[in-house]
């Protein structure tokens, strides 16, 4: 094995540890806020649920509206067409490395889709689902 491969392996371990610790810290925080037994299954169900589009009666919104159904490929902003990097940590090493970034987008996207902020329980469930995609 040449040294580039070894460095690559070490870096990907490092990133996966970094991501794991960011998520784990956030789950700890959510537990302190009242969340418990975070569930990937519940997170997945919420992720795939349709919510009414408040601007287009009859239409729906969901997380796939921008992020797409396949989390390993880039998504696209529904209005501006801007590329959104994939969610899967298997293809995008920068996902789940910045808690402030994660909280910012939770706030925006939960409000846009659900018309309210997500609870700590819901955010924890989402993270459990997304970390394994």
């Amino acid at each position: 094995m040449n040294h580039k491969v070894i460095v690559g392996i070490i870096l990907s371990f490092f990133f996966s540890f970094a991501q794991a610790s960011v998520i784990d810290n956030m789950l700890q925080q959510y537990t302190a806020e009242g969340g418990k037994n975070f569930s990937a299954a519940r997170g997945e169900q919420m992720w795939k649920t349709d919510y009414p589009d408040r601007d287009k009666p009859g239409a729906v919104r969901n997380c796939s509206t921008c992020h797409g159904d396949d989390l390993k490929i880039p998504g696209k902003h529904a209005k501006t067409g801007k590329t959104i990097d994939p969610f899967s940590v298997k293809v995008n090493s920068e996902r789940f490395t910045d808690p402030k970034f994660i909280e910012k987008w939770f706030k925006r996207n939960c409000k846009w889709v659900l018309n309210r902020v997500c609870t700590s329980q819901e955010k924890g469930d989402f993270l459990m689902y997304l970390r394994n995609q």
Binding site: K79, K107, R108, N109
Partner: peptide, 9 residues
């Protein structure tokens, strides 16, 4: 923000 939520701290 033109129908989107773009809130910042």
């Amino acid at each position: 923000h033109f129908g989107e939520n773009a809130e910042l701290d």
